[in-house]
């Protein structure tokens, strides 16, 4: 099964909930198990939060763009913005845990720019259809190494 969606919203905190709901609907429709879906929502929430907090100046509003593609047992989510890119920020209001958390929840993460120059965070997840999976549950895996996120049974 291949399925995909794209969602573009103003980069505001309240719109992250809309992204979460859209991903929840996608996960339900594709039969993604709840533990894996929780991990996916958490990772994508972190990526979207980074856009809201870091991508644009406080007096500017820009877009938050999310695309999700399901192909077989793999879900790829790409979060994009039109900001200057991911750079060190000494005055960051956050704890700096967002990207490490994303890396621990996703099977693969890549940071960069798309062909239009937009900042892009790409996350790949293995999805366990209709049952267990995810790192958050008891016995969850460590991620990385190419092992499916939903390998814990």
């Amino acid at each position: 099964m291949t399925a995909n969606m794209e969602l573009a919203l103003p980069a505001r905190a309240e719109n992250i909930a809309i992204v979460r709901h859209a991903l929840g609907a996608l996960g339900d429709a594709c039969g993604v198990g709840e533990p894996a879906l929780s991990d996916i929502r958490l990772a994508v929430t972190e990526a979207c939060t980074n856009v809201v907090i870091h991508a644009y100046a406080a007096d500017q509003e820009g877009p938050l763009e999310v695309s999700a593609t399901v192909a077989g047992e793999k879900l790829t989510v790409i979060v994009k913005d039109h900001g200057p890119g991911i750079t060190p920020r000494p005055d960051s209001p956050g704890l700096g845990l967002g990207l490490p958390l994303i890396a621990s929840l996703a099977d693969a993460v890549s940071l960069g720019h798309d062909e239009q120059g937009r900042t892009a965070v790409r996350m790949d997840f293995s999805i366990a259809r209709g049952g267990e999976g995810g790192h958050g549950g008891e016995g969850g895996g460590e991620g990385g190494g190419g092992e499916p996120a939903g390998a814990a049974l």
Binding site: M5, N15, A22, A25, C30
Partner: peptide, 20 residues
């Protein structure tokens, strides 16, 4: 508020559109 939503035709359309 505004949103641009594009969904591939198929089983995702109804659940994603209604929730958004």
């Amino acid at each position: 508020n505004s949103a641009l939503l594009r969904i591939a035709g198929g089983p995702l359309v109804a659940p994603v559109l209604t929730r958004v």
